[in-house]
Computed example of a mutant assay.
Amino acid sequence: MIIEKLKKADQIPEEISDIVKDSVINTFSSICGEAPRYVEISDDNKEPLNGIIGNIAVFNPDLTFSLMMAIPKETAFKISESFLGVELPFDSDDMGDLVGEIANILAGDVAANIEKVGFRGQSSLPTATRGSDLTLFMPNKPPTVKMKFSGNCGDFLLNMAMSESR
């Protein structure tokens, strides 16, 4: 069973990260009008972010996949214009709502696609965090995958972590 295999894993299997990567590409293709491309990054890349982070999880009673979309300020403007037809003020509640909604759309796609490998889960409520010099990290060092994407809406990152549900 996939759950038992995942519980013993010390890294997120490529099969799972590929599903998430495809979900990111599908989600942002529909928002921005063209597919963003995946960009290789080094695992030691710890550049701070000046922008907004959308947090959401896909979980079941056994395991949780935490997804953190890190969107730089300029990319957030382009996404809002593409998704809504207007550039939202970065400091507005509406920008936070937009990023939360995009995280929700992404998690729905991940939950549907990850079911194909036997992981049945649901998504949590999304949250958004805005600021400068933000650093993404996970306490307790769970297995993680960092992904970077670049497209006509700009660059953005996705950090995924896998942990036991509590």
Rank of each mutant, 00 (worst) to 15 (best):
I2K: 13
K5P: 00
L6S: 08
L6K: 02
K8L: 13
A9R: 06
Q11G: 00
I16E: 03
I16H: 04
I19L: 07
K21I: 15
S23V: 06
S30G: 09
I31Q: 02
I31G: 10
C32A: 14
E34W: 03
P36R: 03
Y38M: 07
E40K: 15
E40V: 12
E40G: 00
E47F: 06
P48F: 08
P48E: 09
L49F: 10
N50M: 07
I52Q: 01
I52G: 00
I53W: 00
I53Q: 02
G54D: 00
I56F: 04
A57F: 03
V58E: 01
F59C: 06
D62L: 08
L63N: 04
F65Y: 12
S66T: 14
S66Y: 11
L67A: 02
M68K: 14
I71Y: 11
T75D: 13
A76G: 05
A76F: 03
F77R: 11
K78T: 08
S80R: 05
E81N: 13
S82M: 12
L84G: 04
G85T: 07
V86Y: 07
E87N: 07
L88S: 11
L88I: 08
D91N: 14
D91E: 15
S92L: 06
S92K: 02
D93K: 02
G96A: 01
L98T: 10
V99H: 00
G100V: 00
A103T: 12
N104W: 07
I105F: 04
I105H: 04
L106N: 11
L106Q: 11
A107G: 05
A107I: 00
G108Y: 02
V110K: 06
N113K: 12
G118H: 10
Q122K: 14
S123R: 15
L125S: 11
L125Y: 06
T127K: 10
R130K: 14
R130S: 11
G131Q: 06
G131H: 12
L136M: 15
M138Y: 14
P139K: 12
N140G: 08
P142N: 14
P143C: 08
T144G: 02
K146F: 08
M147I: 03
K148D: 03
K148A: 15
F149R: 04
G151D: 10
C153R: 01
D155Y: 05
D155A: 14
F156T: 04
L157H: 07
L157K: 13
M160S: 06
A161S: 15
S163Q: 11
E164V: 12
R166G: 15
